[in-house]
Design a protein around this nucleic acid. Sequence first.
DNA 1: ATGAAAGCGCTAACAA
DNA 2: TTGTTAGCGCTTTCAT
Lengths: 355, 355
Amino acid sequence: MPGARPPTLLDVARAAGVSRTTASAALGGSGRLSKETRAHVADVAARLGYRANPAARHLRRGRLGAIGLHLPAQATGLAYYMEFAFGVVERAQREGLSVTLLAPGATDPAQVDGFVVVDPLRGDPLVGALLGSGLPVVSGEQVAPGEPAPTAVVQTDHEGGLRALLDHVAARGARRPALLAPDEASAWAQALRTTYDDWCRERAIVPRVRDVPFSATPDEVREVSAELLGARGGRTSGATGPADRAAHPRSVETAGDAGLPDAIVCAPDGSALGAIAAAGEAGLTVGDDLLVAACVDSAAMALAGPPVTALDLRPREFGARCASALLALLAGERPTAETLRQPIDLVARASTGGG
Amino acid sequence: MPGARPPTLLDVARAAGVSRTTASAALGGSGRLSKETRAHVADVAARLGYRANPAARHLRRGRLGAIGLHLPAQATGLAYYMEFAFGVVERAQREGLSVTLLAPGATDPAQVDGFVVVDPLRGDPLVGALLGSGLPVVSGEQVAPGEPAPTAVVQTDHEGGLRALLDHVAARGARRPALLAPDEASAWAQALRTTYDDWCRERAIVPRVRDVPFSATPDEVREVSAELLGARGGRTSGATGPADRAAHPRSVETAGDAGLPDAIVCAPDGSALGAIAAAGEAGLTVGDDLLVAACVDSAAMALAGPPVTALDLRPREFGARCASALLALLAGERPTAETLRQPIDLVARASTGGG
DNA sequence: ATGAAAGCGCTAACAA
DNA sequence: TTGTTAGCGCTTTCAT
């Protein structure tokens, strides 16, 4: 019946033959009611299609009804953070909370009950401000050691993920994998670099790391990759004419140039495409002559030619878990000292010689 | 001063020496106050850092404080819809409204004040349900002719965009551009097909259209593209060995095969990458032998090898305009019969021979 | 174990 | 032009 006023708590109470107080307690779960009453009220509420009015509830509870979400400045267009944000939104709206996207430069005291911060950069002033606001803050990924500690932290197991990826390319024949990673002070980039260095040391392999901006342009990634592959990385745009091909014939088995990598692991979201372009220009066949893998999966990785082996970081689930942690804090639970962990999936594709 | 209770309207009223009503009217803009009073109250409010409590406002106004957003089922992972959703969220939160993502199958009467629906598919039952809810509905892109009309429609000029794209590849030498488009009954796909047919007819060109799913897998797009290019589109994964190359030497100028396209325009988000992969397998150099262009720009297009010429549909702005239209409706403005239009930008990249 | 009553912050009738 | 008053729907003392 469109147009009919949605049922209020009073409607439910009357229909159930109890008072508003009892109805509220029965539905809200405060534990001093008879089982019968509780079940009866719940039944009536369900039959009437009762949904608590979030505005009234927030007003009464003294809550703003929103949580603030702080994404890295470069987040726009990065599928990872979009998925993360959707995860936060979906989880929050189940509790009747909305999500406020914090403007990058805003020093404005946002109207929120708490914050979720993801991939905080060392020294980000806004992160410091949030931490000092007195409101609960959940950080997705660790904040830098020196900074004030967030109320709770949720972490992805990037070490395990990268090790799986490196083991994978090693199993496919790569003996000199290189890493393209940001040098920015995010816990993610740091974990990647540390893990890579450890992995190399354990195998007595010389580390080959190159800096790539967190949010790199195609040309930047391509040039760095080209340099890594021993070419000049000239100014020619992506078009690869036949003349450029087969300039560096080599296979994983027979690669003679001792220093040149036979695999490139690309950290920044989407950057593997730049490495593929560089490989093409160098006359290398990706998946055969050169393996390419990405630390962040996305639609672009699946669609690339060839499709790129990547780590599925499950950003949506990650966002949902960050939101859950904040919700628990808001519900009065004690801040959890332990940090959650969730698995990372390796998606093998043609770029590392897989199916 | 963290911990201090945020100022209420009463605080502002007292500080300004007026009543709550006057303060409310001064800030809310109802037009029966002296300029001086209004300015004075606004000044005091600003000095105190007053922000209206959205929960109280919504409760009083009888609003739920949320707008429902319905995205196509395949939206997850498609950057276009993510950007669109962010546009809606950003615009809505400026008005203190939150955005509720409507679950794909939900028949549940969501707790919202109105709806935004984007790219409604012909016969989508949920769209019909929303339209019949009595709440205002803004549709991004037209709904199918037979269905009940939404309260307002916001359209992107896909005809103009596609014409610009076709003219662009024609200017770069393409004489037989093909179109890869979904056959689904979205207004977008229909506009694309109609425009393409018209454009071809005007030039006495034989249309070359192929169906591709709205949300295609890499292999699907690659196979359809390969078939279009005269190859078999076999099962070999994306890896392109040197042996496959230069099988079909040809340039835009000298292409002899009367029927084979010299350009492929790809409609579905990301699908151009599949076309590029197929071109590589066919030994064609994208940007030279074969031009490739996309109807939906994204980070993947910019990062591809070569970067792909694409239409920047400005999804974020589009979402914001849809939200604005709904906000206007909720504010009591009359439904606008005219449909908004916004320009589309053509981003020329190497895949069509550009810089 | 249940009910009565107050009040969260705001806006819209109705007075003055 | 401005102030008084009531009440949106809910949760929470406090009393029974």
